[in-house]
């Protein structure tokens, strides 16, 4: 079924991460991504890996779900690793050489680091933004963080409204697609056999009704909004007001420490411990 896709699925819960202010979570997600790219050295990578594991444990999201979220990037992951392994040169004796392929020790490390980066990136983004933050809270946070831009006449509120509506309609459209597919299957539509052209043509009976109902919904929504005198963000108050709590301050501090530790670690650890590669 289509609805099985974990397309940025919110995972309801009451964990530390769930209770954080969504604005802080957006900022921390960005900070985390920066932190990942700051890492240059085995031990700093180890540090950020440990920290990610800590976040997963705190979020209370099952580990299997996290692994599932990595499935869509598997292809990218393999490509990056292979390219890094084969096509980034190194110095000295290659570890392995056959025909024109030479694998150096340094490219082994580099490929490993690269793969780890991509994996951590996806885990961090889904952990902070999609698994523990409801789509509504997320758009609220983005609207509030982009607020300064509205002084430059950027239509921030309209932008956030569009995002909210789009996110809100994804599950509805998925449900609708499923309904239409079932109706056409009941009339003997064959969606899963035949060549490419036959399969594409088999989609027409699904796409046409889907478009028609999507447009109909859009018109209905516009009418409903006008009936309630919606006229954009001016003077509008919020149903949900966010406040910074102790957890948010604590996490911000924790992140500052993490980033400081990574910067210091990159600089001094190789001199002290003296092993591993840096990029």
């Amino acid at each position: 079924m289509i609805s099985d896709i974990t397309l940025g699925q919110f995972f309801p819960g009451k964990s530390l991460l769930h209770r954080m202010d969504p604005r802080v979570k957006v900022l921390l997600a960005i900070a985390f991504i920066v932190a990942i790219f700051l890492c240059k050295y085995v031990l700093t990578y180890a540090l950020i890996l440990l920290f990610t594991l800590f976040l997963i444990a705190v979020s209370g999201i099952p580990f299997s779900t996290i692994l599932k979220s990595l499935k869509p990037i598997l292809f990218i992951l393999v490509i990056t690793t292979v390219i890094n392994l084969l096509f980034t040169g190194g110095e000295g004796e290659p570890l392995f050489s056959w025909w024109k392929i030479r694998i150096y020790e340094v490219s082994l490390w580099r490929a490993g680091f690269m793969a780890l980066r991509v994996v951590l990136l996806v885990i961090a983004a889904s952990l902070f933004l999609t698994y523990t933050t409801s789509p509504i809270a997320l758009t609220d946070a983005i609207e509030s963080l982009l607020k300064p831009l509205s002084y430059l006449k950027v239509p921030v509120h309209e932008f956030a409204m569009m995002m909210t509506i789009a996110l809100r309609f994804i599950p509805i459209l998925i449900e609708e697609t499923e309904k239409i597919m079932n109706a056409q299957k009941s009339r003997g539509a064959d969606l899963s056999s035949g060549g490419l052209i036959r399969r594409v043509r088999a989609l027409i009976p699904i796409i046409v009704p889907l478009f028609i109902s999507a447009f109909q919904r859009a018109f209905d929504l516009a009418t409903a909004m006008e009936c309630r005198c919606y006229r954009g963000g001016n003077g509008r108050t919020k149903l949900r007001c966010y406040k910074i709590h102790f957890i948010d301050v604590f996490m911000l501090l924790l992140f500052s420490v993490l980033i400081a530790a990574i910067c210091l670690g990159n600089r001094y650890l190789p001199g002290i411990v003296g092993w591993g590669y840096s990029l």
């Binding site: 609708e176 309904k179 239409i180 079932n182 109706a183 056409q184 009941s186 009339r187 027409i204 009976p205 699904i206 046409v208 009704p209 109902s213």
Partner: peptide
């Protein structure tokens, strides 16, 4: 099988 509100299936 005729689903609920089957008019949505017309194409």
């Amino acid at each position: 099988l005729v689903m609920q509100y089957p008019e949505y299936q017309l194409f």
